[in-house]
């Protein structure tokens, strides 16, 4: 294994989260509860796809195989995708969309807050740009969690349900394998132990204000660090990669 393999892999993990959740949010265009919210969700989606482009471009550079960011997005199979299981989960109702966003944005807020200080200059620069965007995503998701949790009995029920159902995908956010441990020692990857504490406290705080109950710790799903996903990712990629796969010689 080359020394750059770890960094390449780490970039894919970061880039794939942004790409897949950006894609999921883009599915919601013209489907939001009202037009202003449609624009808001699209803005978040655009932030994330833009970030994916920057990170995958860097991954391609690190990978050194003359790939472009589009090659990485459109020509990789599921098993070579490393996004967290959380972000590939379907949009569900608006409460699921918001719960998924809350969980991920809170994670990214602390993750990129640390990554700003990392020794890799490119990642540090991407992190400081991302942090501004993610702060807004987190605020947007937190506000909606509170409105829905403390809204009508129906919205309260739906929001609690979404939190409960997606909870089992949150444990994976804080897993650290050999790739990340090695990079952490080099001052590149973020130590996720303190991030987990910060994340947990933030979510607890938001849910309390939303009059929602923090789920009890239960079995956490895992697999994405090794490219093992839920069934959903295959469908996302089948759709996303369709033109590039069907017309491999075409330039778009």
């Amino acid at each position: 294994m080359k020394a750059t393999d770890n960094l390449y892999n780490y970039c894919l993990r970061l880039g794939d989260d942004a790409l897949i959740l950006g894609h999921r949010l883009s599915e919601l265009c013209s489907k939001a509860p009202f037009i202003e919210e449609d624009l808001a969700l699209t803005n978040i989606s655009l932030d994330m796809i833009g970030r994916a482009q920057a990170i995958l471009k860097y991954a391609a550079e690190v990978g050194g195989k003359n790939d472009t960011e589009d090659d990485l997005a459109y020509r990789r199979a599921e098993i070579n995708y490393y996004n967290h299981l959380l972000v590939e989960q379907p949009n569900g109702d608006f409460a699921h969309t918001i719960a998924r966003q809350l969980f991920l944005s809170a994670f990214e807020f602390y993750l990129y807050g640390e990554m700003e200080k990392c020794h890799d200059k490119t990642l540090a620069a991407i992190a400081s740009k991302t942090l501004k965007e993610v702060r807004y995503h987190l605020e947007h998701a937190s506000d909606w969690t509170i409105r829905l949790g403390d809204g009508t009995p129906e919205s309260h029920h739906r929001m609690q349900n979404a939190i409960n159902e997606l909870w089992m995908y949150t444990g994976e956010l804080f897993e650290m394998d050999e790739v990340e441990m090695t990079l952490m020692r080099d001052g590149i990857a973020v130590d996720l132990i303190p991030v987990k504490t910060q994340w947990y406290n933030r979510i607890k705080h938001v849910l309390a204000e939303a009059t929602l109950v923090m789920p009890e710790d239960s079995y956490m799903q895992t697999g994405s660090r090794k490219g093992v996903h839920t069934e959903h990712l295959g469908h996302i990629l089948a759709e996303m990669q369709y033109l590039q796969r069907a017309y491999p010689d075409a330039i778009w």
């Binding site: 883009s26 265009c29 037009i35 624009l39 699209t42 796809i49 482009q53 960011e69 033109l243 590039q244």
Partner: peptide
């Protein structure tokens, strides 16, 4: 076609454009 846009660039452009249409409706 948003979910099937063939490049990251075209996906962003299309999304931004459709978002504009929504904004114009607004």
């Amino acid at each position: 076609w948003i979910t099937r846009a063939p490049s990251l660039r075209s996906k962003q452009i299309l999304l931004a454009k459709i978002q504009d249409e929504g904004g114009h409706g607004l």
